[in-house]
Each structure stands twice: as structure tokens, then as C-alpha cells.
Design a protein around this nucleic acid. Structure first.
Lengths: 235, 235
DNA sequence: GCCGATAATATGTCTGCACATAATATCCCT
DNA sequence: AGGGATATTATGTGCAGACATATTATCGGC
């Protein structure tokens, strides 16, 4: 009898109690746990409350739920790490560092073939190609290499991208419905090394990101971070 | 067919309609949107249904909600990328590759100072130190360097870690309540290069992970992936 | 004009009920 | 025995109403 008298009447409390049973292995991986109605009776709350708690835990990957089959403890808890992808400036300033930004180049070009395929663009679609350097406390922090589909965001042509980064401008002025993001490591090119103040060949953390609005490609960017950069989160 | 034909009566439909208004910028960043009761009236559904939809969008970072203040479109949509952190074997096999695993070394050592501090361990706490190589299609895929707090998981001493990876054994036999995870890039050491079949100094994608159960440190691991590895997700 | 008490308001959540939906178990007819 | 119709079951969701809670607006006294 862990808790006999005090009842568990809100979903956070239900969640906490279920978590306790998972962590103490009172309910073990693969095991079927009591159904919502039973738990509701045990906890002295409504089924909807139990549902809310179990649903949240299932979203977090700790439980597997299937209609009729019931709820069981996840066998391979695919823990989901959620990374907050925010604007670089906000991230840098959030660490208490000063932020600065320099536009390195800006040109309008026909889309190169591999990119055209990735963005599913037509033949002569013109793209805006930008290169920029983001600085933290005056040091090179990240090199941004970005292609923007000018047809999708015509207003970008009039934007002053020497003061505000395309990153930030797009967040403010163009919304997107979907996107994919990839994380990898790459060796610094001579150019990147110069900008980031490191040796050529140094290991850089790289984020590749492409965003869409419905079927229309908005932008594709490669962000290469200075050595030592670390993207951190809790699970 | 309902009377007007286009009523929005379930929370997914409400969410979709709200998303449409966000993407078409009918509701712009920073703007206050109608309250739940009004939307419920407009959509012809219950307030709880609207609540469910808006809450999900707020969790995703697209809306900011505050009691009494109302709901407004997020100014800086901190999109959350959720990464599925699963067992290496499952991930490799999921790509249709064959998986293999080799334990390289296993020794029990007193905790080195920096690690002892990070895991908040006492003085002579003995740790199990493991090094292992994970292979995909016979090629070096990832080098695992792991420290395990033997006091927290005594059963690990009897585990046959030459056949099943510590990664997997721990997922099955030890639960954890919290953890932190960091992503970065690092240059391959001579040893790592030999194991992964790449040049020394090559850029490797690295995951550092430490997990806890309540206040008790369970394990801390560094996973260095072969060049070309890419962690991908959608947002 | 300032400040503290009070009212108003939007979201947050619980409840009890109903029905929907998916998956499984069972029965029945051949 | 086989296979399809049917019943059963657990979760998924919707609804109306109520109260809780956080936050802002307002009003009255000084």
C-alpha cells in the first residue's frame, strides 16, 4: 500500500504515479498495465483524466497503446529528444553573448541541378543564394549557406539582408508548413576555417534544413558551426 | 452531411483549420487570435475540442497561450525537432543493413575525477568502463565508450556484454528517469579512425549521453559515428 | 495620482456521459 | 475444420457543465 488514503485526482499526479511505477519496475517493459477504467477506479478520478496522463506518456514514447489490445510498457523506449530550433541570434543572446551578423554574398542564380531536384523546382527557377557569417562575442560562430526560392517569397528581394539575417527574416515573413532537418559532422573547408577561426579540416557540427509551404519549397540552408559547438537537450 | 456541410467538429479538423490560417498569414505572428469560446461557436464544436487543438499547437511551439491574456501566434516559432533516440541495432536494422557488435574492452576502474564530478559520485565508486564497436553491413559504424555506475545496476556484472551491447542491456534492465543528451562534432582519433575505417582527423558526429534514475547516475556514454552519418528528422 | 482590493476574463482541467473506432475473440454455418 | 459474421473490449474522442487558476482591468479610498 504505497498510497492508501490520498487520492490522485489530476492528470499530472496520475502521470507521476505511473512514472513511479515504471521507474521502480513495478510495471516492466512489455508488460500490460491495467486499463483506463481500472486505473480511474484505483486513483479515484475520471477515466478521461487517466486517459490524458497515459496519452502524454505514450507521446513521450514510454508506453505503447492500441485500441482493444490495451496499454503496455514500451519494450524499446524510443525516447524522444526534442530540440528547440530557434533563431541563431536568440540562441546566442540567450547564452549571454553578444551577437553580430555579416552578409558575405548575395546573388541571384538559376538553381543548380541537385538543388533543383531536391526542391522539386522547374527549369529556370531563379534562386537567391546567400552566404553569411554569424558571430558570438565577435568570434565566428556559424557559417550560413542558404538558397531561397524567390518565387515563393517575392518580398525577399526587397529585404535588407545586410542587417537582419535571412534566417530571421524568413521566420518573420514567411511561414512554412513542413520541413526536414538533418544533423551531421563535416570537415571545415579552407573558407569556413578562415571565417570561423579554426584550422582547415576541423570537425564542424552541421545542420541541413529545408522548409516547405504546402508543395512550394521556401528555402534550403546549411549551417556549419564553429568547433566546440554543442547542441544540448534533456530527455 | 451535416447541415452546413463544412462544420469542423473534431480536434484534428480544428487544428488543420488553425494551421491553414497560420500558413496563409490570415493570423500573423504576434497577433491575438479569437478565444476558445468564439472559435468553438464559429466551428460549431465544443470548447474542449478547440482547447485540445490549440493546446497541441502550443506544444508544437506555434502558439503562445496565457491565461486571461489569450492565445497569440508565436513571434519566434521555436519549432521543436523531435529526434527518436533508439537502440543502435534497431536503427541499423531499420535501414535494412546487417548489424554486428564487438566488445573491445571491459574493465572495472575507480571513477576518474572529471567523470566522478559529472555523475556526482562518492570517492572510491567503482565504474565499469566499456568500449565497443557497432558495425553496419560489416563496416565500422559507431564507437561506443561507456562508463556504468556498477553500484546503480549491480546486475550488469553478470551480464554477457560480449553478445548484447551495454546500450541494449541497459535499456532492457535499467530504467531511468532523466537524462541529458548532447550532439557535437569531433575529429577522429587514430584509434577511432582505425575502428571506423576512416582517416584520422575525419569529422565524426558525436552523441554524449548521461542518464539518471532519480539522483543515482546510471551511465554516461560517448557515441562516435562514422563519417557520413546523418541524424535526420522532420518538423 | 497611487495603491490595494475586487471584478472580469481566458485558459486549464475534471467529471460523467455518450458514441466512434480499431482490434481481437467467439460463434455459427457450411 | 474453415471462414466469415458478430460480439466484445480498450482506447479515442466529443460534449456540456462546472470549477480552478492565472492574469489583467477597474474601481474606490486616500
Amino acid at each position: 500500500m504505497t498510497r492508501s488514503g490520498d487520492e490522485i485526482r489530476n492528470w499530472q499526479a496520475v502521470q507521476a504515479e505511473v512514472l513511479r511505477r515504471l521507474h521502480t519496475r513495478q510495471w516492466r517493459p512489455g508488460e500490460l498495465i491495467p486499463n483506463e477504467a481500472e486505473l480511474a477506479r484505483e486513483f479515484g478520478c475520471a477515466r478521461a483524466t487517466v486517459n490524458r496522463a497515459l496519452r502524454a506518456l505514450a507521446e513521450a514514447g514510454l508506453l505503447d497503446r492500441r485500441r482493444k489490445a490495451g496499454t503496455r510498457v514500451a519494450l524499446h523506449p524510443v525516447r524522444k529528444a526534442t530540440l528547440d530550433i530557434s533563431i541563431v541570434r536568440i540562441e546566442v543572446e540567450g547564452r549571454g553573448q553578444s551577437y553580430d551578423y555579416r552578409l558575405l554574398s548575395r546573388e541571384e542564380l538559376p538553381a543548380p541541378e541537385p538543388l533543383r531536384a531536391r526542391l522539386k523546382l522547374g527549369d529556370g527557377a531563379p534562386l537567391l543564394h546567400l552566404r553569411a557569417l554569424h558571430l558570438a562575442d565577435g568570434n565566428g560562430h556559424m557559417v550560413e549557406d542558404r538558397w531561397i526560392n524567390a518565387a515563393a517569397v517575392p518580398a525577399i528581394r526587397d529585404a535588407d539582408l545586410s542587417r537582419i539575417s535571412a534566417n530571421e527574416w524568413l521566420v518573420m515573413h514567411a511561414s512554412f508548413s513542413e520541413g526536414d532537418i538533418g544533423f551531421s559532422a563535416a570537415s571545415a573547408s579552407a573558407d569556413e576555417a578562415r571565417l570561423l577561426g579554426c584550422d582547415a579540416g576541423a570537425a564542424l557540427f552541421v545542420i541541413d534544413r529545408t522548409t516547405w509551404n504546402r508543395d512550394l519549397a521556401i528555402t534550403s540552408a546549411r549551417l556549419a558551426f564553429a568547433p566546440g559547438y554543442r547542441m544540448q537537450t534533456v530527455i
